[in-house]
Design a protein around this nucleic acid. Sequence first.
DNA 1: AGAGCCATGTAAGAGGTTACATGATTAG
DNA 2: CTAATCATGTAACCTCTTACATGGCTCT
Lengths: 187, 187
Amino acid sequence: MQISEPAEYAILGLLKARPMHGYEMFRQFTSGTIGQIIHLEMSQMYAYLKKLEGMAYVEAELEPQGTRPPRKIFHLTATGQALFLEWLKEPVEKPRDIRILFLIKLYFMQRFAPDQQMRLIERQIQACERFLAHLESQQPETCPPAKGPLACTDDTAFFNRIVLRSRIHQTRSLLDWMRELQQEPGI
Amino acid sequence: MQISEPAEYAILGLLKARPMHGYEMFRQFTSGTIGQIIHLEMSQMYAYLKKLEGMAYVEAELEPQGTRPPRKIFHLTATGQALFLEWLKEPVEKPRDIRILFLIKLYFMQRFAPDQQMRLIERQIQACERFLAHLESQQPETCPPAKGPLACTDDTAFFNRIVLRSRIHQTRSLLDWMRELQQEPGI
DNA sequence: AGAGCCATGTAAGAGGTTACATGATTAG
DNA sequence: CTAATCATGTAACCTCTTACATGGCTCT
């Protein structure tokens, strides 16, 4: 078992700012910036917290609350903080993760280490350029020397090209967007 | 219970071309064009077929096969065909569905009704433009009644703008791509 | 008085993934 | 001789969603 979901890193990020209980984090999720990027259900939040606690990335103390259920105030452990910071500085591998994972990284980078935002963006652009080169290298091969059962009929070759182009287009547009980000005042 | 996944429509589409058994459809998925768009596990294919059979969109006859398990040759029912064709001609609502759902629609449209591809693309562009207008209408509100010159000093407001812009950028790039598609020879 | 907020969770269900089971045939 | 292909599926597992349970407080 290990951390896999964007929301789990977002939880670690919230707790890095300050200790909080589950309900409060949920409000930050739904009303704040992160909620526009990740959707999260109330009970899923509790499930993640349970999981993170089991993995010793967070710990909790109970704060009695009168008649209501006591608040569980979570805070990051040393290993949790180390994991988060390690995750934070690495760009994402695949372009499809940019719209969620990268945006979250950027959000926390701005809060915790604004001076390293530029570096993250640059490295993300490089990763994206590598992917683009990989896609573009496939373009000639899309319809290979016809041979065997996978030989391209006109139909599939034609459409394969459309699919490939759509991915290239998408990746290019992400690159454009990130290059605009670099110009953004305040970053 | 009802059809929700792209893969289920893709199955209906394959069966519209001709009756097939599950394993054969699976091969078409993994080796053909559709496999580049949707990922599908073997057992998930059988699960979908079971579900579609239960909903009476497909039916099957057994074809004995000697020692091996008999092939289940599926074919579309009238309601299955009607559902598929209805689905096929409608553009998708949200831009994020374009990279999967719309591409699949386009793929089958090319196979079954190439003369209606243009219309589908046009309507999809319109749907996308509506969405873009909706996004762009949010932009002024993100940075409320300007107190300073251009100042969005607040942290969250600043980042909200970045998120919103990323979505606008994404939607614009999809529009660009679809407009290129319109120029494509062969469509 | 009823709706919604606070604050925690559990339980049931829906859905997907991985591994397992069969067993002859064909390719390397 | 080993591995992959063919052809079906089941079973266990994991994850996410939706509904439920509690119960006082505040707002309209």
